[in-house]
Amino acid sequence: MGLRRTVAALWVATVLYWPAQLLVSRSWPTPYSWRGDVISALGATTCTEYCSPDHALMNATFVAVGALTAAGAAVLVPQTSGRDRAGWVLVAVSGLCTSAVGFLPMDVSPAAHNLAAQTHWALQVAGMVTLCAGVVGRDRRARALTVACTAAAVIGGAAFLTPGTWGLGAGLSERVALDSLNVWTIGMGVLLLRGLRPGLRPSR
């Protein structure tokens, strides 16, 4: 399997993030609110503020999605240099932070969980901006995808951190902030299959 197909397979596989959320939410004894309840509530391990019977599946999904994101970016790091390499490193570390979220449920280690989630968001936004200024920005399709996803992530993040969440609700604003990052890696995976050259060396 060539380099681009390897990365694409890793990133496109993260699409399972959304079916997993749906499955876990259906096991809740009370209705899960996609608008009002945060994503991490699906991984709550105790029935205190939230009760998520299938929390193990959700936390495993966080770990897997983060690992797939990190692995795909890590494959690209040796193929680039300078600014582009820094961008892929930022995305890789962001993925590791997503995995950390799964190991640190919000109701068990709230401070560490929130730090990992916020670091994931910040690093991937920084990575997308860095890459858009380099190799990604040289492809019209990748540039458009990156600009759109970065804008959504920043707007969603600002709404989530603002009292009242601009009327979107904690769950919806967080999804705009974080799911846009997942959309970006999946979209980049598709573009890799369609000929995007992610590095400076000839693709194999």
Rank of each mutant, 00 (worst) to 15 (best):
C97W: 09
G195C: 05
H113A: 05
L168F: 14
L172Q: 11
A9V: 14
D54R: 10
T146Y: 04
A111P: 01
A158Y: 09
T61M: 15
V183K: 02
V147Q: 04
A56M: 09
A64D: 00
G43T: 07
S33K: 04
R5G: 14
V91Y: 01
V77P: 00
L115Y: 06
A67W: 04
Y32W: 08
L23V: 15
V38E: 14
P29E: 01
A9K: 04
T162V: 07
S81Y: 07
C47P: 07
G171H: 04
L172A: 15
W184T: 04
E49Y: 14
G171A: 03
D37F: 10
N59M: 10
V108N: 09
A144N: 09
R26V: 00
Y17V: 12
A92V: 08
L96K: 09
A20C: 08
A148M: 08
A64Q: 06
R204N: 14
G102H: 03
P31N: 02
L90R: 03
V75Q: 02
R4Q: 15
P202V: 04
Q79G: 14
R204I: 06
L22K: 11
S52V: 10
R175W: 03
P53H: 00
T6L: 12
S81D: 13
M128K: 12
R35H: 07
V75K: 00
R4Y: 04
A148E: 01
A116F: 05
V63T: 12
A13G: 05
G156A: 01
S99T: 13
R141L: 11
V190I: 12
R4S: 15
L22A: 15
V77A: 08
T80N: 10
P29Q: 03
V38W: 02
A151Q: 03
N182P: 00
T185Q: 10
G169S: 03
P29R: 10
S40H: 00
G2T: 11
G36M: 14
V63L: 13
D179I: 11
A70E: 02
L193N: 10
E49W: 10
A8P: 02
E174K: 02
V77K: 00
H120A: 15
T45E: 15
T130H: 03
Y50N: 14
A151S: 01
A100S: 11
V147F: 02
A122Y: 04
L96Q: 01
P202K: 07
L90F: 08
A100N: 06
G195Q: 08
A153N: 08
D84G: 06
A148G: 06
